[in-house]
Amino acid sequence: MSSTPAVPLLQVKNLRIEFPTRRGNLTAVDDISFDIAAGEVLGVVGESGAGKSLTGAAVIGLLEPPGRIANGEILLAGRRIDNLPFEELRKIRGREIGAIFQDPLTSLNPLYTIGRQIIETIETHLDLTHAQARARAIELLNEVGIPAADRRIDHYPHQFSGGMRQRVVISLALAANPKLIIADEPTTALDVSIQAQIITLIKKLCREHGTAVMLVTHDMGVIAETADRVAVMYAGRIAEIGPVAEVIHSPQHPYTIGLMGAIPSVGDAHERLAQIDGSMPRLSAIPKGCAFNPRCTRVNDVPNHRCTTERPELLPAGKTKAACWLHVSAAAQTDKQAVTA
């Protein structure tokens, strides 16, 4: 690996995704920026409609029209990929960025054997003969833990169970040894015991191959076990981003605090869960200022109604970065105290 360490594997800068409608543009993802380093697992969490899946789709160039990237850029190893022509992008997809989607039944073609699908991917991206490609496919299936891979390779997707299908999808994503995998809710459709198997597998493979992962999920438990860093999204914006242990143990943004309190966990003797009243705003009616302000319990702690008028930037707060005026004013105050002292 001779790439300069200074350039992160993936850079997303000021990304904005819009859906033009008759009643004007809906902004589904609003000015978000983040990086993923080589070999790093970045978790992206949020509730339905937070824009997490769209962000993943934008990176891999699979935004469904009329959705479009209205602003910002996406760089893979320093090279801009969001404005590439379709054919160029097709070469990157699978070769440099792999994808794992939620539903393993719909991401495999039911009419072809899994072998044919994996071999096709390998032959498209790597310079191998058919026999070599088949050998590699069997090797991949072995690696993802499919028993009797040399026989199973000629089976159709319906002959596999849900967990096994998801393993096949993972082997497809890994087929051309990509540097980055976008995993969009890879375990949501699976039972808990299978979920544990798949998570362990993704972790193991990424460590062995040095693959970076953007793990999109709504399940904080999965993130806690898998990710190095986590970005918490709310209404199309990143509310907080930081090392996973920090975000889970000492969240800084009021939304993250609420979210963590709302997750029931085994062994907690709390009578009630912390609850965030209200619901996420519709895309057509995102409030002015901080998008979380109507549900936030601490709006009044910030002077000058700043939360309802001005959108906060992602700034360092504690050991994470949070987009919240509380931390901006707190930082300013401590600065002032430092000056007066």
């Binding site: 979920q195 198997q197 438990g221 806690a224 996973v244 966990s265």
Partner: peptide, 14 residues
């Protein structure tokens, strides 16, 4: 198999 949110480093036993 319950995901460990407290991050005690406990490995899930798949």
């Amino acid at each position: 198999a319950i995901p460990d949110l407290k991050m005690t480093g406990k490995q899930r036993t798949p």
